[in-house]
Write a protein that binds this DNA or RNA. Sequence first.
DNA 1: GCACGTAATATTGTAGACAATAGTGGTTCG
DNA 2: CGAACCACTATTGTCTACAATATTACGTGC
Lengths: 225, 225
Amino acid sequence: MTMTVQDSPAAGAADAATLDPRVTDLIRDAIIRGEYAPNQRLIEADLSSTFSASRATVRTALLELASEGLVERLPNRGSRVRAISLDEAIEIIEVRMGVEGLCAAKSSQNLTAGDAAALEQLRDEMIQAVADGDLLEYSRLNQYLDMRIRELSRHATASDVLARLHAQSVRHQFKLSSRPQRAKVSVLQHAAIIDAVVAGDADAAEQAVRSHLRSVIDALRELES
Amino acid sequence: MTMTVQDSPAAGAADAATLDPRVTDLIRDAIIRGEYAPNQRLIEADLSSTFSASRATVRTALLELASEGLVERLPNRGSRVRAISLDEAIEIIEVRMGVEGLCAAKSSQNLTAGDAAALEQLRDEMIQAVADGDLLEYSRLNQYLDMRIRELSRHATASDVLARLHAQSVRHQFKLSSRPQRAKVSVLQHAAIIDAVVAGDADAAEQAVRSHLRSVIDALRELES
DNA sequence: GCACGTAATATTGTAGACAATAGTGGTTCG
DNA sequence: CGAACCACTATTGTCTACAATATTACGTGC
């Protein structure tokens, strides 16, 4: 698999034109990284040449991304990067309240001793990162916690839904994570979530997640006003 | 809404090969109606000739349906109708608990007098249908209620998620709706939901939805065992 | 000078052909 | 008689070309 004999003479060394390992991923990353601005039109022919893939391939990629909610497809009028307004971002988090709450509750039920220990260590690392003012690290751990809880819940349906929603709200979430005082509040909430999950208290875990996300919504509202 | 002007001369007389008004919809309906059995392979070329559309069109349709969770796509090995196990169906309903609960809560907040009256009428019709033993009508009203609550919530994100989940669980839900004694229980729960929404009690509405869905899960478990 | 109609252009949607890949059956060698 | 290898078939993935559609610009009539 690593040896695709691509006899293109001068491999587009400089540009992003490497191979074609899932053009979908390349475009998705580009959007999430902000390389393509919200509402920017995505013309199939352009992407096709940019990623040196056929238009058909690009097309399926756009279809996929549209189903993920990252791009908007107007019939016969092309695709554009979907701009997610504050209101929509809040909607997304509201839905996440329900679904992540479920995940946390489930996680608290099927947890091995090793899992619990790992979570507690993660909690300590998060606290440490905030204490050190290392917001980038904290943000990373944050994301990891979300993912870990999804995994531990063993709930494929919920994980799917969350993955989709997550991709959409990354941008807004990012704005928050770079605020020191926000981190100080949020780390306590995350610790509460972990504690509840480790304690095996499903209801407490769900409530902890919900109140955390409620607080995220409030912070977003405040930030934007 | 009731007047879809369908000018197909001999309405889908013999075959399904009418035109191509969204091949996606045709295939989706066929799957939901059970025309294609779970795990049945869906060969692009076959569908192409069946619906007299190009393989490219069929392909995009399958992609779309895969993102809706109705078909499964094995790389290089084709598509098949996704079989949704009892466990998965329960997972789906668990997620719905969270999201439909949110919708009900939202609906209870932004409700005009007309909306409230319409809901109460719907409630009475449902009660009547069950009293008459008209399970088909009850099932229809049931679906309508779900949809109506989604609409009234004015929550695009939640509606999206629910639409996707709904399509997947139709089959299992259907098995329940044809049981008279089940209907008698469920109609009371639906009435409770409507009452809470009309009363503007967000918390009660959410709880009513959740306990209803919990009961659906129990019924499914019992039915299958 | 403004509005309407019409042609030109840009972009997506569809079609058919080709290439790549997974599965299948047969054949031969041990 | 069994197992590995090889060719064959079926099906998907990708590419190029063509048709349909929407947008834009221009010119003409009022």
